[in-house]
């Protein structure tokens, strides 16, 4: 299972130091309601070997089709890695956040915080 993405070069500066102007673009891929939940769940479980599809569905309240489609979008952006294997004879699908996804998610969350701090 891949931790596919790349970490951005150099240490990230805190939002307060960057200022809202420099992080003024939201991540439109992440901000969609269900994708935001998917990324939040995968980010919270980043120390684990991914989250199984069925559990991710329960955590986000998504339907099968919806979850598959949005995971595909996130995978296409390099934010999520999807791995399929078998446990015994049972197929298992797991999704995990990539380094690139972690960075993008934190940046987006910082952006949201910066909006609030700046009074929107």
């Amino acid at each position: 299972m891949g931790g596919g993405g790349r970490r951005g070069a150099g240490a990230r500066r805190p939002v307060a130091a960057q200022g809202l102007r420099q992080v003024a673009k939201p991540d439109e891929i992440i901000h969609q309601a269900l994708r935001l939940k998917i990324m939040a769940a995968l980010h919270a479980a980043r120390a684990e070997e991914g989250i199984e599809f069925s559990r991710l569905k329960a955590l986000t309240g998504a339907t099968d089709g919806n979850l598959g489609s949005h995971l595909g979008t996130l995978e296409g952006a390099g934010y999520v890695a999807v791995a399929k294997d078998f446990v015994g004879r049972k197929p298992r699908t797991r999704a995990s956040i990539t380094r690139e996804g972690e960075r993008a998610f934190r940046d987006h969350r910082d952006y949201l915080r910066a909006i609030i701090e700046s009074g929107g």
Binding site: A40, A44, Y111
Partner: peptide, 21 residues
């Protein structure tokens, strides 16, 4: 995004992270 929308998104992130943990 307005600050209300940002706050709602952050709240959703917190809720999902808590549920996951």
């Amino acid at each position: 995004l307005s600050s209300e929308q940002a706050a709602a998104a952050l709240e959703e992130i917190d809720r999902t992270e808590r549920r996951t943990v």
